[in-house]
Amino acid sequence: MKRILFLFTILIFSQQGQAQEELNKKFTPIPPKDANTKEVAPPKEAPPKNDPPAVAEKPDPYKINPDELFKNTNLYKQEANVEGIFYRRNQFLGSIKTTGLTSTIRYRDAAFVDGDKVRVYLNDKVIQPEVSLDGEFKSLKINLVQGINKIDIEALNEGFASPNTAEFQVFDDKGIVVSSSEWNVGTGYKAVIVLVKE
């Protein structure tokens, strides 16, 4: 009898172990998707840019830096730091490229004709030792060399009224004006223009 009772107990417990508890609970449905809520798409990644490498520009061998140019104390008088006087310094009047064989420079006194005198250099060599400026243009024809043709115009005095004032014009070999400007420099200072023959 004990054996039957033992077998019966084991049978009841084994039935209880195989029953599924999930089925005894109440069913909870999965809620449907809300129709008003839109699904947000992930942001699109931009493809990496394939920029071509930056092309290194070839430095211009004929580029003139006036600050470096005027540092040469053998050729250029240093600027005088006098308050209120702005003409006691050198002036850079620009760099012009040309393909011509010659160039003509014309100059005259730009203000009151007061006896201003200048000296003209080409590549640091004197080509006009003394020129008196008056109201009429005087001209100087220059045979250009390949590359840099640096023209310095030095004020030899300031006349009766300071500073030394002058107007200049640069013509190419076809007679076309390529530059025109004025300078106001003190005695011993220079106005510089560069013609680059390509």
Rank of each mutant, 00 (worst) to 15 (best):
G84P: 01
K25M: 05
G175D: 03
D67N: 08
D114Y: 11
E154K: 13
T187D: 02
V82T: 12
Q169C: 11
S14H: 00
P163Y: 04
A41D: 06
N74T: 10
S181T: 12
Q169P: 13
F86W: 06
D60S: 01
A191V: 06
I30L: 11
F6V: 13
P29D: 10
A19Q: 12
I30C: 05
D60R: 00
E21C: 09
T99W: 07
G188E: 01
V145W: 13
S14G: 04
I4V: 06
G159L: 04
E130H: 15
S95K: 01
K25S: 07
T99S: 11
T37L: 15
E57C: 03
A46Q: 05
K97S: 11
N24E: 13
Q16I: 11
F137W: 11
P163C: 01
E167L: 10
N184S: 14
V178Y: 01
N65C: 05
N72G: 09
G135K: 14
I142E: 13
E136A: 14
K63A: 15
E21G: 09
G188C: 02
N184P: 11
E158C: 08
L133W: 09
I105N: 05
I64S: 03
A161L: 09
S162Y: 08
Q128W: 14
V192G: 05
V82Q: 05
F112A: 15
T98S: 04
V185F: 02
R88D: 02
I176Y: 05
I64Q: 03
P53M: 04
V177M: 08
S95L: 08
K2P: 12
G17Q: 06
Q91R: 10
P61W: 13
R3P: 10
A110M: 13
I30Y: 15
Q18C: 09
L23R: 10
I85S: 07
E154D: 12
N36S: 09
E68C: 07
N50C: 08
R108Q: 08
L133T: 06
D172T: 07
N74R: 06
T9C: 07
K125Y: 15
D152C: 08
S162A: 11
A46M: 08
G135W: 03
Q18T: 06
Q16F: 03
S181A: 15
T165R: 14
R106K: 13
N81K: 07
E130K: 14
G186L: 02
E21V: 12
K77N: 02
Q91A: 10
P59E: 10
S103V: 05
D51H: 01
T99A: 05
F168C: 08
Y107V: 12
P61Y: 07
T165W: 09
L7C: 14
L11G: 00
R3A: 10
E21H: 07
F112Q: 13
P29Y: 02
L23C: 14
K174G: 15
V126D: 08
T165F: 04
W183S: 13
K63Y: 03
